[in-house]
Amino acid sequence: MTELRGIYTLWLREIKRFIRDRVRVIISFIQPLLWLVVFTAGFSARLVIPRVDYQQFLFPGIIGQTLLFTSMFMGISVIWDKEFGFMKEILVAPISRFSIFIGKMLGDSTAAMIQGVIVFTFGFLLGIPFNPLTLIIALPVMLLITFGLVSIGLIIASFIGSLENFGAIQTFINLPLFFLSGALFPTTGEGIPGWLQFASKFNPLSYGVDALRTVILGSDWTPLNPIHTNIAIIVIFDIAMIIIGTWAFSRMKK
C-alpha cells in the first residue's frame, strides 16, 4: 500500500513538473511538424512505398520518433534531481528502489505519451488519411514503446553526473535508434544493404514502428512481423529495461 502510494506520488510530481514547463511543451511540437511537412515535401517524390503515400508512411514513424526523443529526454529529470539534491529526499524515503524507478518511469512515460498524442492530432489536422479512432488502439502500443525507451533514459541518467554528458550520450543513442528503426525509410526489401537490415533487427524501436504502422495504416501496410510478435518483443524489452533500471537505481547514492 505504502509502495503504491509512493509510486503515485512520484508519478504525480513528474506530471506537475512537466505541465508547469510550458516552454518545453510548446517547443517540442515544432520538430515533428518539420518532419511531417518539410521533410515530406522534399522526400515524397523520391521514395515510393507501395499502396500508401510517403506522408502516410512517415506518420507512424514520426510518432515513434517523438516517443523516442521525448522519452530519452525525460531522463534529464534524474540529473536535475541529483543536481538540486531532491534525489536524496526520495532515496531516503521508506519505499523500495523498484517503486522509485517505477514511479519516475510512469510519470515520464505519461509526459512522453502526451507529446505522442499531440503529434497524433497533428496528423489528423494535416489531413493524413487515417481513421482517427485508431488512436484508441494505437495508445496501448505507444505506451508499451514508451516504457522501454523512458527506462533507457532513466538508466543512463542514473549513471551520469552532468547535464552536458547526458546531452551528448542521448544524441549518440537517439540518432542510430531513429535511423535504424524504419521510421524514415524501409529497412527491409530490395536494395537495402544487408548490414542495415541486420542492425535494424536489434533495434527495439523497429518493432514499435512496425506495430504502429500495422495499427494506423491497417490493410494498406504489409507488416514485417505479425502484430503479436512485435508486441511480445516490445514487452520483453520493457521488462528487461525495468529490471536493469531497478538495479541502476539501487546503486544510486544521491
Binding site: M1, R5, L12, R17, R20, G85
Partner: peptide, 24 residues
C-alpha cells in the same frame, strides 16, 4: 540535509504533501 533537497518547482504545500505520501 546539509545541502538543499526540496523541489523548487513545486509549492511549499506540495512538497510537504509529497513527503507525507512517501512516508505513508
Amino acid at each position: 540535509f546539509q545541502d538543499p533537497s526540496i523541489d523548487d518547482r513545486l509549492t511549499g504545500r506540495e512538497n510537504l504533501l509529497m513527503h507525507a505520501n512517501l512516508y505513508g
